[in-house]
């Protein structure tokens, strides 16, 4: 696509959000639609700037200069929970996809547990881990685990039979076949699972922080609501969305770099 075309197509993406924000601003200012319950975008922006860059004082206002700190709290929890989910979900999924015995042994249990929403795990998580980081990380891991394990299973099952035959013919052991053929072949599917899992991880961290921990964007969200700071609530929501979007872009970039072969293949077909 020529540069001008690229530019105009990326401009297209902004039409809808810009119109929505403009509509929100105008209707809010005139008090027509939201009846004054929601602050307008300009007030949200001011609140965010203060939250992010204001100098913290010894006063009671927790919404000055604490944004980055809370972002780091939440992001760190998501990262930890997500990494544990990858470390458990990928090997387990590959094993289920590779071995019929293992599938029969483990897969039904996963399928029975999966319909229990992560929110339903909250009380148990608090009972076991208390109001601490572990509870939040547990929920994130659990939420991200299911899509990762299912997609890894799917990927391992869909490996071209002749790739495995070829590897064995070339003298690859069972372990080498898993590591050098099944895992790379399952990668595109695994990355699908990672993207979905990471999204659920962000949902989980907000829920957990609302209830089970006393810091992070989820905690601020609920706390600000209680004290009637809807401008902070909205700024918080936008921050969560932005972080979720950026972390997803990171995964997409990583997959683009790792899975060049797969991308080229899809383009060729």
């Amino acid at each position: 696509m020529p540069l001008a075309g690229q530019l105009s197509s990326s401009l297209l993406a902004f039409i809808l959000p810009v119109s929505l924000i403009a509509f929100w601003q105008l209707s809010g200012t005139n008090g027509v639609i939201f009846g004054g319950a929601l602050p307008t975008p300009d007030r949200v922006w001011t609140a965010w700037v203060n939250w992010a860059f204001g100098t913290p004082t010894f006063g009671l206002n927790p919404y000055v200069g604490t944004w980055l700190q809370n972002v780091i709290f939440s992001a760190e929890r998501v990262a930890k929970g997500f990494l544990v989910a990858i470390a458990t979900g990928v090997p387990l999924g590959i094993a289920i996809g590779w071995s019929r015995l293992f599938a029969k042994l483990v897969d039904p249990t996963i399928q029975w547990l999966r319909p229990v929403p992560i929110t339903a795990w909250l009380p148990i998580s608090i009972a076991i881990f208390g109001i601490r980081d572990f509870g939040a990380i547990f929920l994130i891991t659990l939420g991200a685990f299911y899509p990762i394990v299912i997609n890894a299973t799917q990927g391992a099952r869909a490996v071209d039979k002749n790739w495995i035959r070829a590897a064995q013919m070339m003298g690859a052991s069972q372990a080498a076949t898993l590591w050098r053929v099944v895992l790379p072949a399952a990668m595109p599917s695994i990355f699908t699972g990672l993207r979905i899992g990471l999204g659920i991880g962000w949902t989980a961290v907000i829920v957990a922080e609302m209830v089970a921990v006393k810091s992070g964007l989820g905690y601020v969200l609920w706390d600000a609501y209680y004290v009637g700071r809807m401008d902070i609530v909205l700024a918080d929501m936008v921050s969560i969305g932005l972080l979720g979007y950026l972390s997803d872009r990171l995964i997409v970039a990583l997959s683009g770099w790792l899975l060049t072969w797969h991308r080229l293949q899809s383009f060729n077909q």
């Binding site: 071209d160 035959r165 070829a166 053929v181 790379p184 990668m187 072969w261 293949q265």
Partner: peptide, 13 residues
């Protein structure tokens, strides 16, 4: 016993 497959079946990555 080296096998050559119909579609080559190379490892695409």
């Amino acid at each position: 016993r080296g096998v050559v497959f119909q579609e080559a079946s190379l490892l695409p990555w």
